[in-house]
Simulated assay, not measured.
Amino acid sequence: VKYMEKLFHPLGVIVNEKSFRRYEGDGIRKVTSIRNVGTTELMELAGLRGVAMHGNSKSAHTRLAITTPHDVARRGEMAVSCMQQIATLLAKQAWKCGR
């Protein structure tokens, strides 16, 4: 979750309200909060992002070696669901601002 905070907070997407306060100011303001996005989905997004970014590392290969294709597909679905929920929240906020 800490990694996701570092990824989303500078964009104005609040993962954790308390830690977001460190980012406010200097052009960063709240756009939306993802408090209703499932933690499991958020963790899968972070995990798959880590595997993708560190794919050549031994730990990533070890992790993937014990994962079945069904598990990979399910984890991918959860990660995509997380991004879809975040994109929907951002789109709703953009729509409000454009009116």
Rank of each mutant, 00 (worst) to 15 (best):
V1N: 01
R21F: 07
T40Q: 08
G38W: 07
H70N: 06
N16A: 02
M83L: 15
I28F: 02
R29T: 11
P69F: 13
A60Q: 06
D71M: 15
P10N: 13
P10E: 11
M53E: 14
T39R: 09
P10H: 09
C97K: 14
E44P: 00
H70V: 14
C97R: 13
M83A: 09
C97V: 11
D26G: 05
S19H: 05
R35D: 09
K96D: 12
K96C: 04
I14E: 04
A79M: 11
V72H: 09
G27E: 09
S59E: 15
L89W: 02
A79C: 03
S81D: 13
D26T: 06
A73P: 00
G12M: 12
V31P: 02
A65W: 10
R49L: 14
W95Q: 07
T39D: 13
S81Q: 09
A60K: 04
W95C: 05
N16I: 01
R74Q: 12
A87R: 09
E77I: 10
G98N: 10
R22K: 11
S81T: 11
L42H: 01
E5P: 02
I66H: 13
E17C: 02
R75D: 04
L48Q: 09
M78C: 01
V51H: 01
L7T: 02
L89N: 03
I86D: 00
I86C: 02
A91K: 13
V1T: 05
T32K: 04
N16V: 02
R99M: 08
A52S: 10
L11T: 06
G76Q: 07
T88R: 12
M78H: 07
K30N: 02
R74T: 08
R75Q: 09
Y23A: 04
K2N: 12
P69G: 07
F8K: 00
A60V: 08
G50C: 06
C97L: 15
T40L: 12
F8L: 14
K2W: 11
I66D: 15
V13N: 04
V15M: 00
L11G: 01
E41M: 10
F20Q: 01
R99F: 10
R21I: 14
E24H: 07
G38K: 11
V72S: 03
R29P: 00
E44Q: 12
A60S: 15
K6M: 05
I14W: 01
R22Q: 12
L45I: 04
R29I: 08
S81E: 12
C82F: 05
G12S: 07
H61C: 07
A73V: 14
M83I: 15
